[in-house]
Design a protein around this nucleic acid. Structure first.
Lengths: 240, 240
DNA sequence: GAGTGGTCTAGACCACGGT
DNA sequence: CCGTGGTCTAGACCACTCC
């Protein structure tokens, strides 16, 4: 296998990450840029490249005139997938998540879907419908469309015990790059109300999500309906 | 009032942002780093600082050996402030935003607020209530709490013609680092229904936002109520 | 080979916080 | 005052893409 030669600043990122997670506590002070520069025998700019990346990843915070400190790992923002993963979100709230696959079917892209998913008319799709619960309480219904070209051979077995994103990664080597979400409130329809076990006409949160992989392909289109009285959707933004 | 002197690379970010949004199309090629360096009379590193920021904000993409290109504006991920800035969001949808300041008042932190904002009981606060419209249609009501210690001397004049975030940056040198948002759906109450000009009991989207600056201080706590039939909230996630 | 972005150096001055 | 991070310069070599 060809060896990828890591750049200096990448090596320093690894060294510092290791040091921070193994030996340091939140709010501990790191050596100054000039010290690190001497220690590792590289220029200060190279140290800054590494520290900038660690800053953006939430490992450290910096105060002008004071120094660089280890960030609180608890508050620290996990990677993208946990910011929109139902499973992760419920776990972080201390609730036990559960997913019921209502059905998985093949279909052809309708006109609306071709526009939303940037496909050609009649392109093959997988459609899946899932009921998501927390502590046994129905929380939301998800209707997901996946391009069949990308997810060839998808079966309900694969989806049964793993999250959609872990299936994408493990079985299809798909790395998610971006996700765009839209939220709005409406009143729930009769059918969904029954599934979620709420009165017809209750308020509900509608979420649409489009997910892109590293090749800028749309790998997922999902529309969710969540009950308003139980489900709170959390989003974290970071300014980089 | 003290003027905030913009650094060179920040000025270049503004210049390039303006150029990109006004005069260029997606996939147009930008001048090379060395050219920009000559054009603006700054070093290449300074140009790179600006381009890195534009890259992370989704304005451009870069290909080694080829050049720097304008990203697809539609798909484009704005920087943090526009991802939750009502003004930016409406502009990107081609609608004309408008804000009416209903009131600005001083108050002391209640028990609930001390917990949410991590303040001491009775800490001084500014409370402001704003009605946000698009194309003249009332879209959402925002109730915002700001720590008075940080925003000393805040007046309605300052808020009149500028967004909250530009006031933070220009008048108080506050750089936003993080924002956490929560969404849920409910039914609108009588008072808010009147303001938003919808029937009582209509569905509405509730958003709570807590904003942190670079020093990890909470600089804003906002609760919004948006009408479900008109307002769609968009969020973009990036895996970096 | 020419041009691009990616990495790196060895300096410099500034703004800020604490002493 | 000193030490910190923040900004900036003017170079250099590398890896990559296209011709």
């Amino acid at each position: 296998m060809r060896q990828y030669k890591m750049s200096l600043y990448e090596q320093i990122i690894d060294l510092l990450q290791d040091k921070i997670t193994r030996k340091m506590q939140p709010d501990d002070k790191l050596p100054s840029e000039r010290e690190l520069s001497k220690t590792y025998g590289v220029s200060r700019n190279t140290i800054r490249l590494a520290l900038d990346k660690l800053l953006r990843s939430g490992y450290i915070y910096r105060k002008r005139g004071q120094g660089t400190f280890v960030a609180n790992q608890k508050e620290h923002l996990a990677d993208l997938s946990s910011s929109y993963s139902f499973t992760e979100q419920m776990k972080s709230l201390g609730r036990v998540p559960n997913t019921e696959l209502i059905y998985l079917a093949s279909m052809e892209a309708s006109k609306v879907l071709t526009e939303s998913m940037n496909l050609s008319l009649g392109a093959p799709l997988y459609k899946l419908k899932r009921l998501r619960c927390a502590d046994g309480i129905p929380m939301l219904i998800e209707r997901t469309f996946l391009p069949a070209e990308i997810f060839q051979g998808l079966t309900s077995e694969r989806l049964a015990n793993h999250s959609l994103y872990s299936v994408m990664k493990r079985d299809y080597q798909i790395e998610i790059e971006r996700a765009d979400e839209s939220f709005y409130a409406s009143l729930i329809n009769r059918k969904d109300a029954k599934r979620l076990n709420v009165p017809k006409g209750s308020p509900c949160l509608n979420v649409q999500r489009i997910t892109y992989d590293r090749q800028h392909r749309i790998v997922e289109y999902t529309m969710s309906v969540a009950r308003g009285d139980q489900f709170i959707y959390e989003v974290h933004h970071v300014n980089s």
